[in-house]
Design a protein around this nucleic acid. Structure first.
Length: 727
DNA sequence: AGCACGCCGACT
DNA sequence: GTCGGCGTGCTC
């Protein structure tokens, strides 16, 4: 029997091995971790298939060393999904499987949580003085236990202790061993929540009806309509049936508030998975999900791969959010894979959003029975009024039109809060010489440098390069000046115009420190702030009940972009930021500054809301044959020399001649919209087809040829199926 | 991706 | 005379 093993390497195939000498081959099962020799290394692979024979000549086969565990780490359904994902995204299977395993498990940590752990005793806690002067290892072991509370033997050994050290410490009475009780699956007590309105109740009912079978439901609820309450009620039913719920949320939305909300309702802590965890924390959460001990698993993108003992329901909150798409390496969409996963498990999935992606909306329109609408805000709150402010016909101060300033004044005098949204951090996007026209460019990118800190520093937002800002033009020595507005400059202007209004700025620069965001949001909630200025960061996860005025300072980035998704993103941002305003008794007002008040999509959004915008945008996509009315894939390439990436992609186009390509068009190659980035020259090739079948078929026969091109090794390249950013 | 082998410059 | 630069080749 031959073992086909997935190995963490960029090679697009499985590797065949002979079974380990000291294991019964019949006991081996797909999903199991295996130690295998690979080149001169020994690595952990995952057994994917047991085969009768190998296509490789027997003298090339090596023998697997040993299984790591007795049990498969990944269950059969998960393996199928990983297989499917590797095929669909045309990504090396080893890398895909690696995405489903916590780092610790890829380097040999035990699959199951340890049953016996070491802990400090009372004496151990105060042991420093009672140790020999040179007992560094003992000191380190005690320190480790102080920091981690408890640790299994192998963990302590890995951190530098030895068996003798542990024995010695035990004899001195400083540490002791504890048997952990077998994890029992707790039954979860559910505290009652607020009563549901009819739309919420109907949505919950629809989810409940579908439990136990696959159904993809769109929960389309305006901001403030109580989507989370629907999730909580549906999850309560899932838990009562003894199943688990997996909740996927965007990166920034995974806030302590959300976790607290689940904690308040359910008497069992959810397992939480996000990028900020240490390897140990991640492993612990993963194990709790796999064992079934965690009844609710909340996580960002990569949590879509976490094993579940008894899957019952998947929720994808804010399903339109771009952070569900991985933008490098294995470029999967967690939202799309979540749907595939629900299908394979035979369970329902709820996609929730106030501004659904056009893909999801189109699918729901084809199957109206899967659309669950929450059309009203809770407690009869009025939806905010949206008004355009024409920047061409109003004077203003530094990017804020006079009527906007007056409206701000009015809201502040009434004791309410005002939110200014600008999707551009820094002081000004350009440093410009008014005399000769020079402007500051990044030496390694085709981009302007952004002025930061009044005008102290120039920062490239694309490669991170920083330099001191010039005071004088390097070519004509005239005084240079910052042009345009970023959040820092808006802050400065607003401080001058409203000196008495306490103000907070929320963007990546001002919220560097851990916990700073939470502190600031709490200050806003306590009404210690009356003007809030911020970027994207403000539009996710948090609500501001005392904000009655939202100003979108610049709606125009995105109206005329080359990216066909730009207007969709703009509409989503506007609706999401507008949704922060006005709750319950206060109705909100939203002002949108633009130089293009006649723009068709803006008008649709203003007149008929997101729904009208979406039907207009969908019509446009249909006419121009873009997704969801077509399928696309993007091959990106970059290299230090400008010709290499283009030459590689041209060779790739040539390699496609003569292949079956029913309806598949290759558009390009073309230089990327920003050709040079971080000193590398980038180019791209767009593949377009009406449906995904022919596109997938073409990619399958074409990519092996592309891989074999000589230039494939000289350029760094990748394939992105269903790309969301077109550059 | 690792990790090795393999030929040409500045140094113990 | 060696250490080490990264080109290119391979991994069941």
């Amino acid at each position: 029997v031959i073992l086909a093993v997935a190995i963490d390497t960029p090679l697009r195939r499985l590797f065949d091995y002979l079974p380990p000498l000291h294991a019964d081959p019949r006991s081996l099962r797909p999903g199991q971790r295996l130690w295998v020799p690979f080149g001169r290394r020994r690595v952990i692979g995952v057994l994917m298939q047991l085969r009768e024979r190998s296509e490789l000549s027997p003298d090339k086969l090596r023998r697997a060393l040993a299984p790591v565990d007795e049990e498969p780490a990944l269950d059969a359904t998960l393996l199928e999904i990983l297989d499917w994902a590797a095929e669909y995204y045309h990504h090396p299977i080893g890398d895909v499987v690696a995405a489903a395993l916590p780092t610790a498990l890829r380097t040999g940590a035990p699959l199951e949580a340890p049953r016996r752990v070491w802990r400090l005793t009372e004496e151990g806690r105060a042991a420093e003085s009672g140790l020999p002067a040179r007992a560094a290892r003992m000191r380190a072991a005690l320190q480790y236990l102080k920091e981690h509370a408890e640790a299994a033997g192998p963990e302590l050994l890995a951190s530098g202790a030895t068996g003798a050290v542990l024995k010695n410490l035990q004899q001195r009475g400083f540490i002791e061993q504890h048997e952990l009780a077998r994890e029992s699956i707790p039954s979860v007590a559910v505290r009652p929540g607020p009563s549901l309105n009819p739309a919420q109740a109907a949505a919950v009912e629809a989810v409940r009806d579908g439990l136990g079978t696959f159904r993809s439901l769109l929960l389309y609820g305006v901001t403030g309509s109580g989507k989370t309450e629907v999730y909580l009620h549906a999850i309560a039913t899932v838990l009562a049936r003894g199943a688990q719920a997996l909740v996927l949320v965007p990166e920034i939305a995974l806030t302590p508030q959300l976790i607290a909300r689940f904690g308040d309702r359910f008497d069992a802590p959810p397992a939480v998975l996000h990028s900020g965890l240490s390897d140990g924390e991640r492993l612990a959460a993963w194990r709790r999900a796999r064992s079934g001990e965690a009844r609710i698993v909340i996580g960002t993108r990569s949590a879509v791969f976490v094993p579940l003992a008894q899957p019952g329901l998947i929720v994808v909150d804010e399903e339109h959010d771009a952070s569900f798409k991985q933008q490098e390496g294995f470029r999967y969409s967690a939202r799309d894979l979540a749907i595939v996963r629900a299908q394979r498990h035979g369970i329902p999935i709820v996609l929730g959003s106030a501004t659904p992606s056009l893909e999801t909306l189109a699918r729901a329109q084809r199957q109206p029975e899967t659309l669950l609408s929450l059309p009203h805000r809770a407690a009869d709150a009025q939806p905010p009024r949206l008004t355009l402010v024409d920047l061409r016909s109003h004077a203003g101060a530094q990017g804020i039109a006079t009527p906007v300033l007056m409206t701000m004044q009015r809201h502040l005098e009434a004791g309410n809060q005002v939110l200014l949204f600008l999707n551009r951090r820094g002081y000004a996007p350009v440093l410009f010489c008014p005399k000769c026209g020079w402007s500051a460019h990044c030496p390694r990118c085709d981009a302007h440098l952004t002025v930061h800190g009044r005008s102290q520093a120039l920062v490239c937002h694309h490669c991170g390069a920083q330099q001191q800002a010039q005071q004088q033009c390097p070519s004509c020595e005239a005084a240079v000046k910052p042009v345009g507005q970023g959040t820092e400059r808006i802050e400065e202007t607003v401080r001058q115009l409203f000196p008495d209004a306490p103000l907070a700025r929320i963007d990546r620069d001002s919220m560097r420190r851990k916990g700073e965001l939470e502190e600031t949001l709490a200050r806003v909630d306590r009404k210690e702030v009356s003007i809030l200025i911020g970027t994207q960061m403000l539009t996710k996860g948090h609500h501001f009940p005392n904000v009655t005025l939202v100003v979108v300072l610049n709606a125009d980035q995105g109206l005329f972009s080359t990216d066909f998704r730009a207007s969709e993103r703009l509409a989503q941002t506007i609706v999401q930021v507008a949704g922060r305003a006005g709750r319950a008794e206060r109705s909100g007002e939203v002002l949108i500054q633009t130089e293009y008040p006649e723009h068709a999509l803006l008008k649709l959004l203003l007149d008929g809301g997101y729904e009208s915008f979406a039907s207009g945008a969908l019509r446009e996509r249909q006419q121009t044959s873009w997704p969801p009315f077509a399928r696309i894939a993007l091959v990106r390439a970059e290299a230090p020399k400008p010709i290499v990436a283009m030459r590689f992609l041209q060779a790739a186009v040539d390699a496609g001649h003569g292949l079956p390509r029913k309806g598949v068009k290759l558009l390009g190659p073309a230089p990327a919209p920003m050709e040079r980035r971080a000193g590398r020259y980038r180019a791209q090739l767009l593949l377009h087809a009406d449906t995904h079948g022919p596109l997938q078929k073409f990619l399958r026969s074409w990519l092996p040829r592309v891989e074999a091109l000589p230039d494939a090794k000289r350029a760094r390249w990748s394939i992105d199926v269903d790309p969301v950013e077109l550059f």
